[in-house]
Nucleic acid binder design. Structure first.
Ligand SMILES: [Mn+2]
Ligand SMILES: [Mn+2]
Ligand SMILES: [Zn+2]
Ligand SMILES: [Zn+2]
Lengths: 136, 136
DNA sequence: TATTAAATTATAATCATTCTAATATAAAAA
DNA sequence: TTTTTATATTAGAATGATTATAATTTAATA
């Protein structure tokens, strides 16, 4: 399903800015910051403003179209909400998707068995931190 | 082991500021921000500066005395490095420790078996996100 | 004691994000 | 089609966490 349909489905008015932001999020794999998105879109959409990117991301987050990824260097990164997956954080800033159904099940089952009342599946995240060689 | 011994052990000069920061981190359970630490210490140590708190935290981090906890609201929280544990993030900002040996082992074994070359134990974190009732 | 280095402090700078008010665009009403 | 109203975007200011800079204090060394 393409960006336009997704916006319609969520009753979000499909402005050109929103379509472009969503398209970029759907197709890129870098887990961009708001600034990254803005920089990328300026090429094809020179009039877009950084404010709009922030506004749009807030709107998308409310509708669960994107997830915020926490980082420890004070910048929020965004991830298009597709099927459940985890993330590998590299020390150079790269964030990589990590998909593993078997691990999903393992963890789901474990929490359902041991903490059935506290947590539901989607609340649990696995974060993998890897140091790049250069960074000692 | 108390704060003073830990600093000696890591060859960090035991200034009053460093001792107090470390003691607070060791004893409190709120996973404080730099500002939280500063506010708390001002009572018993009125001359301490926020700069020092930041400097000290950087120093502690280099020596693996503390870990940074990522958050999605642009403030870094600090955690004294004790035995391996995970964290529950509540939507109201509280961060709670979550210790579970069985889960540690489960995850360790799984990664050792399936991704032995990519990851080592301590790189893997489990983050649990829970919405407080009020927050809809 | 004099000299040097290290740590702390006050303060300014940076930078990601949010807020505010103005403008533009689209939808609804007349 | 015009007028009105609501919504979205924009530019720019404000905020707030963190980092950088330079001065001062403290501790260590000669
Ligand atoms: Mn910041
Ligand atoms: Mn900030
Ligand atoms: Zn992802
Ligand atoms: Zn903790």
């Amino acid at each position: 399903m393409d960006a336009l349909d997704i916006l319609k489905q969520h009753n979000i008015k499909a402005t050109i800015q929103r379509v472009k932001v969503l398209e970029y999020l759907m197709n890129c794999s870098i887990h961009p910051s708001a600034e990254d998105i803005y920089m990328h879109l300026k090429n094809e959409l020179p009039m877009i403003s950084l404010s709009s990117v922030y506004n749009i991301l807030i709107e998308f987050e409310k509708n669960n179209l994107v997830n915020k990824l926490m980082t420890d260097n004070n910048t929020i990164r965004y991830d298009y909400t597709k099927c459940k997956h985890y993330h590998i954080y590299y020390s150079d800033g790269k964030i990589e998707d990590f998909e593993d159904k078997e691990l999903d099940n393992l963890i789901s089952e474990y929490f359902n068995k041991n903490y059935p009342n506290i947590v539901n599946d989607n609340d649990i995240n696995v974060v993998i931190n890897i140091k790049n060689k250069k960074d000692k």
